[in-house]
Nucleic acid binder design. Structure first.
Lengths: 117, 117
DNA sequence: AGGAAGCGTAACTGATGGGTTACGGGTTTG
DNA sequence: CAAACCCGTAACCCATCAGTTACGCTTCCT
């Protein structure tokens, strides 16, 4: 999962994965759809290979890359733990608890300002 | 989604997110749970903030960080396009895997090879 | 064979990023 | 007001990385 997140974090690699969604492709075919050099694409393919998101197979003098959908599931599961807000409805209570850690004092009126984009 | 993947790609940031899953925390409290320096954690928090995965709120002289679960959904959706119809939260795949490869066709006898694993 | 095609790798470079220490600005508290 | 506290930012160092060109290996075609 670790490597998977890193692999997905790159735009070129995401596009490669999207390309492969239609079916397996040889390295040259993949590289041909990008403006960057073929070795650069080759290294992106290596990252994807190491992450396990794609698998390669030598067919003659071509190297065919194939998607490995199972590999996505692990990361999807990790993310899923955050998508559902499970049950901490007492966000202010928890906050108050943490504030008490540093000042075990009686509280006064608490101003609060927000800073959110 | 772009920034989200990059934010998740780091181990420290993943741990911060996991911490925040229990509820909001001030920056100092978060930093206290890591061996790395507080400014280092502060920069990780900035990355998470910019990615939109967390939101900050000034309370007195503390800066409280809160998880933003909605932000995970976008990336989860992108990843879901690659997961096989294994059957947990995946919609039924109404799309057949069209293996149409736009092969660059030379004017000669076109070696063709289909490869699917 | 011999040459062209397909790909990965090596070597190098500029950009990026995570770590640190030093510092400044806002907020309570005495 | 001054001191202590919380926290982000600036300046800096070192490791990593994405991009390039040059090269070597293997495979297909004539």
């Amino acid at each position: 999962m670790d490597d998977v997140a890193g692999a997905i974090a790159d735009e070129v690699r995401r596009e490669i994965l999207t390309l492969l969604r239609a079916g397996p492709l040889p390295a040259g075919e993949i590289a041909g759809r990008f403006t960057i050099s073929r070795p650069a694409v080759s290294r992106h393919l290596r990252v994807l290979r190491d992450s396990g998101l794609v698998r390669d197979e030598l067919v003659g003098r071509q190297r065919i890359y194939t998607l490995v959908p199972e590999r996505f599931t692990e990361l999807a599961g990790w993310i899923a733990r955050f998508t559902r807000p499970s049950g901490w409805e007492q966000r202010l209570d928890a906050l108050a608890t943490e504030v008490h850690r540093t000042r075990r004092d009686r509280s006064r009126g608490t101003d609060r300002q927000e800073n959110t984009a």
